[in-house]
Design a protein around this nucleic acid. Structure first.
Lengths: 233, 233
DNA sequence: TGTGACCCAAACGTCATACTTAATCGCGTT
DNA sequence: AACGCGATTAAGTATGACGTTTGGGTCACA
């Protein structure tokens, strides 16, 4: 991703962030900087900068004379890609996957509708290409290749919507799709109905049929939610 | 909000953040830390911590031997409430308002549908209360009171959806609604049709009619988009 | 003239330390 | 029991030193 390759800062952040989002420190817990210095064997500088970053994510709140307080989950910036990644890697994974899938079910149909209005010919071509790629790889244990086309497809739709905020969800969708492949249906071929729907969405976008693109994408989303048992509980 | 009361850190951040999101530094611009030290008359400590925070928002990227590089807008964490606030306060305001309104149009109908399934009786009562409050304040220059009910209404819907990510959009919706009142229809009473729709949504949620709650909220969203001329361009 | 390796300096990254500030705790007074 | 005041504590800021990376310039050589 970024230049978070290695270094004390990244090491401490990648240790504290996941721990907090995993709930290792209950809300209200207090971390003292000098304690963290000793625990991670780093200087005050590093600890402070990490704290500042966690603070900007609203994971903690630093106050004088009291220490660094862990905030309750309702305060967290749950749209921060880093926070999303940490939560997907922890025990909150199922809950996080459901939240994200519901978000997808809301956003992607609207994005597809907008894409049908605004997609460039190049984007339409990309869409068709990836839809056909999904068809080609939908049988015979080619899940990895299929996944790449699936991710690319949704990324193009979100970008073609012309909405910057939708476009930024591309990474999130990629994480969700990857997570699903790696945990849910790892050994079974993709649902043929879903594959067909993707082809039809590409077609609808190409023909500038916004209504149809939106409705078809809504069907895809419904299928994704069904896979995670997100239904009348 | 947080303890961003005052202090060198907040001062520098609240100066650099808006400047960057306003496009004062074109993507690729380089800021040197010692230059910033002199410009703001603060120590390296403060500058470095600010840079770390901006980096976590993906507004800048700090690299050795080259400096702090301003990243292109596509890289920004546009869901960070701080970034949203900065952009709403800058020249990008119209574009940002449109993006957020489109996001609302995608999320809120789905949220309303979920709320109809999961809202507690207390939440239903709150909803009705605020809808009636909107009715009561919809005439005769009571825009401020109306706005408070409007914001509260949408916040309850988002929270009642039971989805943490939807719930976190409450603040964003509040900013959008406030912005609209303060700039678009400041001197005219709210659209009576919109008021009626809110009452009907509250009713649909109370009756657990998810389909109807979603459809009605979609109408509200369409109205909001029409106000901003987000239509077949 | 072009290309390659090599060296250097620039700017960030980290550490250590001293000092400042503000909020909490506890004591004593009213 | 309520209130106020000072001592204490931990974060906030400033500063100086050193390490590390890396972009670019120089020089030798083909």
């Amino acid at each position: 991703m970024a230049n978070h390759g290695q270094g004390p800062h990244a090491r401490v952040l990648e240790s504290l962030g996941p721990a907090i989002t995993a709930g290792a420190y209950p809300p209200g817990s207090v971390l003292r900087t000098d304690e963290l210095e000793q625990r991670f064997q780093v200087s005050r500088t590093v600890v402070r900068e990490v704290i500042r970053v966690l603070e900007s994510m609203h994971l903690v709140s630093s106050r004088r004379r009291v220490g660094v307080t862990v905030l309750p989950p309702e305060e967290w910036n749950v749209y921060d890609p880093q926070v999303i990644r940490w939560r997907l890697a922890g025990p909150d994974r199922p809950r996080q996957l459901r939240s994200l899938t519901v978000l997808r079910s809301a956003v992607e149909p609207v994005a597809a509708g907008l894409a049908a209005r605004r997609a460039t010919p190049e984007q339409c071509a990309e869409l068709t290409e990836h839809a056909l790629g999904m068809v080609a790889t939908s049988r015979g244990q080619q899940l990895d290749a299929y996944l790449l086309h699936d991710i690319a497809f949704h990324r193009v739709v979100l970008r073609a919507s012309g909405n910057e905020m939708f476009a930024r969800l591309g990474d999130v969708v990629a994480e969700v799709l990857t997570g699903r492949t790696r945990h849910q249906v790892m050994f079974t071929d993709p649902d043929p109905a879903a594959v067909t729907l993707h082809v039809q969405v590409a077609e609808a976008v190409r023909l500038h049929d916004a209504e149809r693109a939106e409705a078809l994408t809504r069907e895809i989303a419904t299928g994704a939610m069904a896979e995670l048992d997100i239904l009348a509980p």
